[in-house]
Amino acid sequence: MREPRLLGPEFVQLIAEIDEFKGRWEAIGRLSPDRLGMLRKVATIESVASSTRIEGARLTDAQVETLLSNLEIQSFATRDEQEVAGYAEAMDLVFEAHADLRLTENHIRQLHQTLLRHSRKDERHRGAYKTLSNDVVAFDADGRAIGVVFATAMPFDTPRKMEELVAWTRKATAEQSLHPLVVTAVFIVTFLAIHPFQDGNGRLSRILTTLLLLRAGYAYVPYASLERVIEDNKDHYYKALRRTQTTLDGDQPDWEPWIGFFLRCLKRQKDGLLRRLEREADRDRLPEISRLILAALEQTGRLSIAELEAVIGTNRNTLKVRLRELVAAGQVRRHGKARATWYALPGLPSPGGDA
């Protein structure tokens, strides 16, 4: 495999900035367990919703939050619900067991099996490499295939290519011949070029990205959604993938489009988390009633003034003053009008969605 050798100054700077945040996380991430739990809850909802929407699912963040709160039902009626449930369980497995999940073909197949465990349509090929061609195809407005966008590996070649990719990744990681962020980027773009499974490759690639980042020591990853960043830049995501993938079989693969996109997404991920941490620090300087309002909204998702009055036990006029301050500061969002007004935290899905 022809790996990248020299990185331009922009890439070196991006890696240095991401690694600086990685080093600071141990100190700046010492929030209370409740606050860390809330950050992780928001990031998980965003990640599950975004990653499945990238592949065509249509569930909103609020619908995903509701579904994740009822995962124990183990029965999901629609394809979208099945994909969300599987993605959430695969993510949870990576978060909880990444120290023991070395990058092996068996673990990749295990994660694929978890990812598709609720999908009846995929039951026959869960955890198994593809047996049929799965080239990336473009469709017209009527759903008719109009041409191959990208030719993936042939089924016959897939086991060999996956063995080579995993071996290269493990060797590069052990020898530290490349920076771990570059190793992760190369693994993902090559994995998606192989497209080893009949379905679920895009979702699995993002699960594997999280696994590789956690194993490389980027412990803040569960608290900020990389999937949300990718969804917000989906057109650039596909363009960067294709520009690099179409060169992989040549003598000089062009790694820069994908590595550049990947590093810029990681920068946006850590920038978003840093902004949230700064808001958490600002909260400590708020009046006590304001902190109680935020805590109540974290617990319930959305509340009216009457409900806040009952929960907090203070008078309505004081609540109105504190709510106006929180809304003006962007720490709370107001929804609805007049008697139908209710409040929620920004970025945190609430039952029923936005007004």
Results as ranks from 00 to 15, higher is better:
157 D>H: 07
157 D>I: 09
173 T>E: 13
167 A>E: 12
171 K>Q: 11
143 G>E: 02
161 K>V: 01
154 M>Y: 14
175 E>K: 12
167 A>S: 10
150 F>W: 11
144 R>M: 11
141 A>T: 10
155 P>S: 07
143 G>L: 07
164 E>V: 13
169 T>C: 00
159 P>L: 06
172 A>D: 07
149 V>N: 03
160 R>G: 11
144 R>A: 11
164 E>R: 07
155 P>A: 05
154 M>C: 14
176 Q>R: 15
177 S>K: 11
167 A>K: 07
172 A>L: 08
162 M>S: 08
161 K>G: 00
156 F>T: 13
152 T>D: 08
170 R>A: 06
146 I>Y: 02
145 A>Q: 00
149 V>T: 04
153 A>G: 06
174 A>W: 12
145 A>H: 08
149 V>F: 04
165 L>C: 04
163 E>P: 07
163 E>T: 15
148 V>K: 03
175 E>M: 09
177 S>V: 11
176 Q>C: 08
174 A>Y: 14
151 A>C: 00
143 G>C: 00
170 R>Y: 04
171 K>W: 15
154 M>T: 15
154 M>S: 14
167 A>L: 05
166 V>K: 04
156 F>V: 14
148 V>D: 07
174 A>G: 12
155 P>K: 08
158 T>L: 01
147 G>T: 02
159 P>D: 00
171 K>Y: 12
143 G>W: 01
142 D>Q: 14
155 P>M: 05
157 D>L: 06
172 A>H: 10
163 E>G: 12
149 V>G: 02
143 G>D: 02
158 T>E: 01
165 L>P: 05
174 A>D: 11
142 D>I: 09
148 V>P: 09
167 A>F: 06
164 E>M: 12
164 E>W: 03
160 R>L: 09
165 L>F: 04
144 R>K: 14
141 A>Q: 12
165 L>V: 02
147 G>Y: 02
144 R>T: 13
168 W>Q: 07
162 M>N: 05
148 V>R: 11
169 T>M: 00
171 K>N: 09
147 G>L: 02
146 I>F: 00
159 P>W: 06
166 V>L: 00
158 T>W: 00
158 T>A: 02
152 T>N: 01
166 V>D: 00
159 P>H: 03
159 P>Y: 01
142 D>K: 15
176 Q>G: 09
146 I>N: 01
143 G>Y: 07
149 V>D: 04
153 A>K: 02
